[in-house]
Design a protein around this nucleic acid. Structure first.
Length: 221
DNA sequence: GCGACAG
DNA sequence: ATCTTGTCGC
């Protein structure tokens, strides 16, 4: 996979995105995260998917997989580095989450197709992008108080996501709809999944496991 | 050409 | 993301 053909894929797939209101509240939500490590000069990715009940946020299921990665990290092309591993891991899930949270952007992307959006097209179900930093767009302002938020806009001033304060005295989160969900519903779900921490619980649990599994993996061998 | 740049 | 210990502050 070359970078230039990856760009063409994004420019084509963005036309398939749909942003519709969530019909009903989900019963299961999945959180995805990945970590990386190198062995004998080869780079590997460890992807973890955690499924929680909603709105209780109780643990339901988890699956993880280690795969080799060849595509480098290139801002705007994260999908081609982490996407393949996610797809393989997803196929091992027994439960069927109605919504999936990704660590990265949804529509708040140079070509409107961040990791969450691209994976949403694959899954054909609602996805959300939860990023810890900005990739694209300009926020109207920076939120400071818990729950406060501002629109994130593209150069044409169109709203592509939002910057929201999910915890006091911490940098805000950059969230955007991935696919089959509106920005409004995206923000509602993110706020409903907060558990006293800055990162929504599905993504937070996945991140904790991604680090722990990798650490145990190195400790044993 | 210069700066920006998810994880 | 990852390399890495302690430390300032709510």
């Amino acid at each position: 996979m070359e970078a230039d053909e990856a760009l063409d894929i994004q420019r084509e797939l963005v036309n398939h995105l749909r942003f519709s209101p969530l019909g009903q509240m989900p019963r299961l939500i999945a959180g995805v995260d990945s970590s990386f490590f190198t062995v004998d000069g080869n780079e590997y990715i460890l992807t973890v998917i955690v499924v929680l009940s909603f709105p209780d946020l109780e643990y339901v299921e988890k699956k993880y997989l280690t795969n080799r990665v060849n595509f480098p990290y290139i801002p705007g092309l994260l999908t081609f580095r982490e996407g393949p591993s996610f797809v393989k891991t997803w196929k091992r899930l027994h439960s069927e989450p109605e919504v999936v949270f990704f660590d990265g952007q949804g529509t708040a992307h140079p070509r409107g197709l961040g990791l969450a959006s691209h994976m949403g097209l694959f899954l054909e179900r609602p996805t959300i992008g939860v990023a810890k930093s900005r990739l694209y767009g300009t926020p109207d302002d920076i939120p400071k108080k818990l729950g406060e938020w501002f629109p994130l806009r593209n150069p044409d001033k169109e709203i592509i996501g939002s910057v929201i304060c999910t915890k006091k005295d911490t940098k805000p989160l950059y969230i955007s709809p991935g696919h089959l969900i509106t920005l409004e519903d995206t923000m509602r779900l993110v706020m409903s999944c907060l558990n006293g921490y800055k990162i929504p619980e599905p993504t937070r649990q996945a991140h904790i496991l991604t680090q722990r599994i990798k650490r145990e993996k190195q400790t044993e061998q």
